[in-house]
Amino acid sequence: MTLAIELEGLSKSFKDKKAVDNLSLQVPAGSIYGFLGPNGAGKTTTIKLMLGLMRPDNGRGKILGLDIEKESESIRRRTGYVAEMPHMYGYMTVQEIIKFCRPFYPVWNSGLVEKYLDFFSLPLKGKIKNLSKGMNTQLALILAIAPEPELLVLDEPTAGLDTINRQELLRIILEEISVQGRTVFLSSHLLHDVERVADQVAIINQGKLIDVRSIDDLKSSVKKVRVVFQKEVPDDLFSLPGIQSYSREGKAYLITIEDNLQDVLNAIKNYPYFALDIIDQNLEDIFIDKVRRSKA
């Protein structure tokens, strides 16, 4: 398997706070990879380390086979990046920023630029400082995909966008990037967006990687079981492998199970019960649960 991103034990601290803590990640080439985490989890710092805007305290990484510390410029030549808040030169017009960025890259797809300038109805003569947040992100996306990058890194690109703009942006990611076999690294705390497009997700909290899986695997492996027993059950029932957490109200239990559902169900069924329901989890439920547990 060819890897587009390979991070090994990456760490970065700011004063006493560990923003990224021994993070290891492998992103297969050609995948759409969701990088999930609450605000302040270390997503942006990880991206900045990948793109050479920051240097790791420890660890190493390769992007498209290139060392993140030694070959940063080559990485950026082959990587498109959209920041959460793209701060471009406000005094330039849309046309001027395109003209400014073009000479930096060996390849520039002018047809693609024209197509999406027209699609988003971005004013060529309009100053960047007068563009809305949505238009700024759209322009940043055009600038990121115009050099036909092998890897597109998006840091919270849909944050602050309205529903229509979010859907359009995600559609472009699918149509223009993913279909052509390029890799997309999508950092977000908006689970629905990631769920819609990503093949795999990594969940990060407080700088640490909590889980890495395909979305289907994650959703099928994590379930909640609601069971109302007829009488008291021994506590060691809840220490079975796979039980991540449980809460109790009287004889009713809500149990979060990961990876070992059948064995846990068999064990539960050994005790008489009034009701037993298996509740499917969406990505948001799983994410919240995992983040809460990582904090605990």
């Binding site: 900045k48 793109l51 050479g52 805007l53 410029e73 080559s74 950026r76 030549r77 990046y81 920041a83 808040m85 793209p86 701060h87 471009m88 030169y89 406000g90 960025c101 930096f104 890259y105």
Partner: peptide, 14 residues
Amino acid sequence: NNKTMSFLLTRPVS
């Protein structure tokens, strides 16, 4: 200060 430095430094330029 304008935060345009990170935009500039994410272009392929040394």
